[in-house]
Simulated scan of single mutants.
Amino acid sequence: MSNTIEAIHLLEVKLKDLLVRYEFLLEENEVLLKQNGELQMLLSEKQRQLEDQKQKFDVLKVAKTMEGSNEDSRNTKLKINALIREIDKCIVLLNS
C-alpha cells in the first residue's frame, strides 16, 4: 500500500513540474512571437528604405552622367531611349 501512495505522490510531483514547465514555455512562446512580429515589421521597413535608397542612387547616377562629358551624356541618352522603348512595349502589351 505504501508503494502505491509513494507512486501517486511521485506522479503528482512530476505532473506539477510538467505544468510549471508548460506555463513557462507558453509565456516564452508568446514573447518570441511578439519579438518575431516586431522584427518582421522592422525588416519590411528596412527593405522599403533600401528600395528608396536604390531609386535615389539611380536618379543620382543619371543626373551625374548628364552633367558629365559628352560620352556620359550619350550613355544617358541611350539609357533613356532604352527605358522609353521598354515602356512602349509595356503599353502595347497592356493594350492588347
Rank of each mutant, 00 (worst) to 15 (best):
D17G: 07
L11A: 15
T76L: 00
Y22R: 12
N3R: 14
A7C: 06
N81S: 05
D88Q: 11
N81R: 06
L19D: 12
G68R: 00
Q35F: 05
A63W: 02
T65E: 15
L39D: 05
E51Q: 10
L33V: 05
N3G: 08
L60C: 03
V31R: 15
L50Q: 14
K61N: 05
N70K: 05
V62G: 00
E51F: 06
A82P: 01
L60Y: 05
L15T: 07
E51V: 03
S69D: 14
S2W: 04
R85C: 04
L33N: 10
E86R: 13
M66D: 06
Q53E: 15
N36L: 13
H9G: 07
L19K: 13
I87T: 12
V20T: 08
Q40Y: 06
D17C: 03
S44E: 14
Q55N: 10
M66T: 02
L42E: 15
K34H: 13
L60E: 07
L60H: 06
K64V: 02
G37H: 06
H9I: 11
E6N: 11
Y22A: 09
N36Y: 08
R21N: 13
K16R: 15
S73H: 14
K14Y: 05
Q40K: 08
T4W: 14
D88M: 07
R21Y: 07
L43I: 08
E6K: 15
S2A: 07
N36H: 09
L83S: 11
I84G: 02
L60T: 03
D58T: 04
I84E: 15
K89S: 02
K16N: 15
L25G: 02
N70V: 04
S73R: 15
S2F: 04
L11W: 09
L10C: 03
L78W: 01
I8C: 09
L50D: 09
E30A: 14
Q49F: 08
N29L: 12
N81W: 02
E27K: 05
N75E: 09
R21V: 04
L60W: 05
L33F: 05
S44N: 08
E28Y: 02
Q53I: 12
S69F: 04
S73E: 13
K89A: 03
D88E: 11
L78P: 00
S69C: 10
L15Y: 09
Q35D: 07
I5E: 11
V62W: 00
Q47T: 10
E23G: 04
L10F: 03
K14F: 05
E12Q: 12
E28R: 09
D88F: 07
L32P: 00
H9T: 12
I84W: 09
E71I: 07
E45N: 09
R48E: 15
Q35K: 12
L50N: 14
L43H: 08
N36W: 08
L60A: 13
N3T: 06
K34E: 15
E28S: 03
D72P: 00
L42Y: 11
M66N: 06
G37R: 10
L15F: 10
L39R: 12
E27M: 02
M41T: 03
V20Q: 13
K79T: 01
E38K: 13
I80W: 01
D17E: 10
A82W: 04
M66Q: 10
L83I: 06
L50P: 00
N70Q: 04
L42V: 07
K56H: 05
K64D: 05
L26E: 08
Q53W: 14
T76N: 01
K64G: 01
I84M: 10
I80E: 02
L60M: 06
L26F: 02
G37F: 04
V31S: 14
